[in-house]
Write a protein that binds this DNA or RNA. Structure first.
Lengths: 232, 232
DNA sequence: CGCTATGTTGATCCATATCAATAAGTGTGG
DNA sequence: CCACACTTATTGATATGGATCAACATAGCG
């Protein structure tokens, strides 16, 4: 296990200002692993032994209860997940599975907490990251409680469009089945919602989306920075 | 404005280990205020000028969009709210109003961030607090996406019972109208849900709840520590 | 005491889930 | 390269959870 320092990790603001020696200490216990698609990396309820960082690929965070399952979030490179469980040394609240072939760094939570105790730049970075995560979940919750499924879909499309530079045409970044669960609806309903949106300036062709009348779509979606802007 | 150090604040783990001088610095700019019920303390979208701490009373966090409104959380003494917005210097995502006569400490966010930069015990405490908040919202989201409204109510009753020492009889801690919105349903529906729960060992008399058959209620509610335990 | 809030109940409507059938890909092995 | 299985997407029919609307009851409260 000869471990290079994974230069990608330094791209994360989480590790940007950490002291070199502390970063090295973290890397000593860390290892990288390649996973095929559809591998369950962690299960909710398990002890949080590792902080995970996605270097490439996609990871889905999901939860189940009483036979039902729902998608909570999707993690794309380069970002961490289950940071909160790691810092609190508490069980994972969500399960994680790879959606595609993925490269994941595993950093022992214990090491992370040790460095967090001595490196103040690191602990401040964790604060920033956690505050960001928190605000994102709050936005997701507002989205769920205040909007109908069609409104959620309309806003999702506008957000995706914004992610690719306000382009009017783009590909859905994952399959409709998962998109449906993420938006809190069934796949069947997502299909129908797409149809409904045709009258509001949205063209769908497989996973290719074209926004033909942005004003119309926005009139329906009524996007709000306090719900749809995941950057602040 | 002669400011005593509000000894209650030291009860908060957030301020437990902070250096005395830094705590004093925070208190210099802070002030306490008494509010009558139904006062809107902050509005979503406003800049986060103050970190708020509830000393007594109750505060409701709520959000609105497109004419709809929903309760996001209820804050009881002694706890902070809108910490995430304060540390990120970002707009509030939720509005807050007093539900009863309340005593609130207001700490300038700027001061808070300044102390947070120099006091590592404080920044670590913020990490713990934010991680806790994050995990709570995730649980709320799982509750919303994975359960029907009756299941949410059943679990809410079990949680309330647990809060008062597993007692089989207790008072609802706020009015049914708000409880309904908090659980993501309408007041009318809450009424009917209570009726449904009568067949599962729940007696309702005004705001007084009696659990007459806990096993039966738990069979319906299927409580899970990964959703219903707000302490971990 | 009325007045106004809040809570309950009933009737109806609507959004969304479920069930079922079909279609369209997608990948595998012969 | 095609046949086959298998998954994913769509469409229709129906069921149901929950919302809405309306009427009424009840309870605080000045």
């Amino acid at each position: 296990m000869p471990e290079p320092p994974y230069p990608e990790l330094k791209d994360l603001h989480l590790f940007a200002d950490i002291a070199d020696e502390h970063f090295a200490a973290l890397m000593r216990g860390a290892y990288v692993q390649n996973f095929p698609p559809q591998i369950e990396l962690i299960s909710e309820g398990d002890p949080s032994d590792f902080l995970h960082v996605v270097l490439s690929g996609t990871v889905e965070l999901f939860s189940a209860w009483n036979g039902r399952e729902t998608t909570m979030a999707t993690v794309r490179p380069v970002s961490t997940f289950i940071l909160a469980a790691s810092v609190r040394d508490a069980p994972y609240l969500m399960s994680a599975r790879t959606l595609e072939k993925s490269r994941i760094v595993l950093i022992p939570s214990e090491d992370m907490r040790a460095v967090f105790d001595v490196d103040n730049a690191f602990s401040r970075a964790i604060v920033a990251e956690l505050a960001q995560c928190y605000r994102t979940v709050v936005k997701v919750q507002k989205n769920l409680k205040l909007r109908t499924s069609i409104e959620r879909l309309a806003n999702y499309l506008l957000r995706q469009s914004a992610r690719v530079g306000k382009a009017d045409e783009f590909e859905l970044s994952y399959d409709k089945r998962r998109l449906a669960r993420f938006l809190g609806m069934t796949p069947e309903n997502l299909s129908r919602s797409f149809k409904t949106l045709q009258s509001y300036g949205v063209l769908v062709n497989g996973s290719r989306i074209a926004i033909t009348d942005r004003d119309d779509l926005e009139r329906l979606a009524k996007p709000s920075p306090l719900i749809d802007d995941y950057t602040t």
